[in-house]
Nucleic acid binder design. Structure first.
Lengths: 115, 115
DNA sequence: CTGTATCCATGATGATACTG
DNA sequence: CAGTATCATCATGGATACAG
């Protein structure tokens, strides 16, 4: 059964579930930075321009609650914290890639004053 | 050139463009209702459960500004208003379908107490 | 039917400073 | 380095009533 067979109300329900999980301006950018290899708090912050420590801290907690990332205290000296994306988080990647692709095209269209 | 060749800063920029365009809880559910054929204000409102007229009105204006829908006054008597999705709006559909698909799976995982 | 007008509540985001 | 603490502001959304 493919998605287009679902009743519209179901589609919207699932869509809203997803929107809730990724809500806000920052969760996906943070995830993107982590897909690309950033695992330290400061690295992530540097990659996601303009995000403040307070907001990043909150987003990381939200992502952890949703089981999309894992926070680990490394047994090193001095101790460091590393965040890693879970396999589950990678199930979001096709969607994120599609969003990047759309955004890139969209920006070109806007430059042309759109259609 | 594929998306994974882009520098991370570019990816995040495009991602944020897309997030900005679809921002909020309602734009995509409204678009989904319209993909499925709803074209009248009341029809859309009935399909997108719990959305208020004020919010729907605002979302429709936003979507129109982004050239994703078109508002038309039908030359009927009495006059009716119809909203239709533009071809451009359909370029978002793969992303929306992916979100529906992910949300469906996600809901199952949550039911299983997730992984 | 297709909206507008208020008023209000909440959450999200931002600026800045500070800490172990 | 990896955060927390405050304070402030702003955007989003919701309730309700009303109007052409």
């Amino acid at each position: 059964m493919h998605e287009h067979d679902l009743p519209i109300s179901e589609k919207i329900k699932y869509l809203q579930d997803t929107l809730f999980t990724i809500s806000g301006k920052w969760k996906l950018p943070v995830l993107m930075a982590m897909y690309s290899g950033a695992s330290r708090f400061t690295d992530i912050q540097r990659n996601v321009a303009a995000i403040t420590t307070k907001v990043l801290s909150k987003e990381l907690k939200d992502l952890e609650e949703h089981h999309l990332i894992v926070r680990e205290v490394d047994r090193t000296y001095p101790q460091t914290i590393s965040y890693t994306v879970t396999p589950y988080a990678f199930t979001l990647k096709p969607m994120v890639d599609e969003m990047i692709s759309w955004g890139k095209t969209h920006r070109l269209k806007i430059a042309d004053k759109l259609a």
